[in-house]
Nucleic acid binder design. Structure first.
Lengths: 345, 345
DNA sequence: TGTTAATATGGTAACGTTACCATATATATT
DNA sequence: AATATATATGGTAACGTTACCATATTAACA
């Protein structure tokens, strides 16, 4: 492969002059530019970003660490990150941690070795280790979607507590009193916050000890399936179910079907995280929807601003609100757009 | 940040010895390993992969170029690629081309500059330029999902023609004769092949010139929405619709609902590409499903084998079959698992 | 006209690694 | 005892770029 030296020789200039033309920096004449560009084209020269990065200590690369890109919330997030990064001339490297802190640490180490300029992190657990590791390395981190305790870092997320509260209040307004909670993993802030929102709403109707109504599992369809079966086996049966994320909700839906229970006639069901309209044959689930794409764009732009030294000194903590989307699955008379949700994007 | 020199000094050895310990290559004593590892830990040393890559001409990085990661087919693909790559110690950088060959070229250039070891490419168009560019650079490419004419390259995809043929034959077996085709962009092999499969099936029932039944658009929900409206405005109205991908099918579903047409009672509908069970509240669409995850794993392993010099000299062309999944939307008496599709994965 | 500033270009070294060769000791083989 | 081999370690240069400083020419200004 030709190097900048080869181009320089061919164009009859010094390597540094070729560098100037490529990066459009410093001074060079129009004639020199043409000769250099001709040489580049003739040789099929491709600048080596490793060498460049080694020298200038910047790679124009961001790392995106998330738990599972197949979750449409994270898919949309990834798209938002890549769009914002690409626009700024940055490239995105990603990985799936599957909620494993060990995997997270391993990948993080690799990304630091690769000298990524910044990291967008959806933390797998509640340990601040990953953030500390990156910060010790001098690599800026923006934590997305989840809180991490005991670290000062930029972070962008939704208000899960308020979103959960709104959903449960909706169910209560529809007359439900026995509302079961299918929660996510303890220690994950989104799971904890949604549980807190549930508890706050339940406390308001005088149910403070709702122990037998609350379960926690993992953010998976099978977990939702299992938990919902346990939930509806209780006597008296809950009249409504709150699933703490999209996968849990779909698992719950399957579980209820298997038990011969109709939604919402026999049991009402609400979930967290919407499915993108492009994926839903029938919009049906009442949910608290998080603006995943916006969240990603905001987080990425914050990170890029940080890299450019344009962000405020202090850590930014940006919290977006969820949108309550009422469809059929919650039942009752509050149905607004269930089944008629035909937005094309 | 400490370098290998600093570690060497601290451990009282030469840099090259530290390198040996880190990479577990060559000879070194147990005692040396301990001293080096201690020094690494004390200094918080992080090896610089840019320098390493520059020297050994390998980055353990793959590029994944696809059109839109929000399409669940590509989401699953991305997951499969990352799983296979991660297992082999490779990292994945990705981008969305949005079916633009210009974007594709631009990203490809950047990835080559970054010295990625290999490229997994879902080509945005029918131009072989991207593949040629990479090959001229000496970077192996595996083309996924789509054919590219006039290049010899590894490629892994599904048999779109056969899948489309199966779907249309199904509709015919259900008694349909006027079957409208909502196609993808001309020049994209999957779109062309699905159209070809449609035509082959239609020819078999004596309909060779099915001009007014065929439309082509883009692989988007809005395109499906528009095209289906045009399709059902024809007289006599088609009794069945074949949408060439998942987004088109969902757009078509919305369009039919807006026209007051019921699926499948008034119009039957079939699509290409399934939605993952974790995303579908109601499995409803009859589809030809592509094994996206397997496809990705096969493609990535082929690429890694190629990098390791373990792949056969000649270009590999691997073609998987689609699975016909019959649900409610196709109507008729052949319903096998519509609405009762409760697989948990 | 002399001085300053903008323009244009290049030489040398450095970024942090590892390949290659060299050296030295310890062990095994004939 | 002489030779070959395995083990252990290091010196030097190179990977391909750009920062820094230096130099030379031209244009602008007082």
């Amino acid at each position: 492969m030709p190097t900048i030296q080869d181009v320089a020789k061919r164009a009859g200039v010094a390597p540094i002059t070729v560098s100037r033309v490529i990066n459009n920096s410093g001074y060079f004449s129009e004639e020199t530019r043409e000769r250099v560009e001709a040489a580049i084209a003739e040789l099929g020269y491709v600048p080596n970003r490793l060498a460049r990065g080694l020298r200038i200590k910047q790679t124009n690369t961001l790392a995106l660490v998330l738990t599972d890109i197949t979750n449409p919330f994270f898919t949309t997030l990834a798209r938002g990150v890549e769009d914002a990064a690409g626009e700024a001339g940055f490239t995105v490297t990603f990985c799936n941690t599957d909620e494993s802190e060990a995997k997270e640490q391993k990948y993080l180490e690799v990304f630091l070795q690769q000298q990524v300029d910044g990291i967008l992190l959806v933390p797998a657990g509640s340990s601040p280790d990953s953030v500390h590791t990156a910060q010790k390395n001098g690599t800026p981190v923006v934590v997305i979607d989840r809180r991490v305790p005991d670290v000062s870092t930029d972070s962008v997320r939704c208000d899960s507590e308020a979103g959960a509260y709104k959903l449960v209040r909706l169910l209560q307004d529809l007359g439900h009193r026995r509302i079961a909670m299918l929660g996510g993993p303890e220690g994950i802030s989104t799971a904890d916050d949604r549980l807190a929102g549930y508890r706050r709403a339940m406390a308001e109707i005088g149910q403070t000890g709702n122990g037998d109504l609350v379960q926690s599992g993992s953010f998976t369809m099978s977990s939702g399936y299992e938990m919902v079966k346990t939930a509806v086996a209780k006597t008296p049966r809950p009249t409504a179910i709150f699933a703490a994320n999209n996968f849990l909700a779909i698992g719950a839906l399957r579980g209820l079907q298997d038990c011969g229970l109709r939604v919402p006639e026999d049991v009402a069901l609400v979930g967290f995280d919407d499915l993108p309209p492009a994926l839903t044959t029938f919009p049906f689930l009442t949910v608290a929807a998080q603006p995943a794409y916006d969240l990603a764009q905001i987080a990425t732009k914050l990170l890029l601003a940080r890299l450019a030294g344009e962000a405020p000194e202090t850590c930014q903590e940006i919290i977006l609100q969820t949108e309550l989307i009422i469809r059929q699955s919650s039942g009752g008379s509050l149905i607004r757009n269930g089944g008629c949700d035909r937005s094309l994007e």
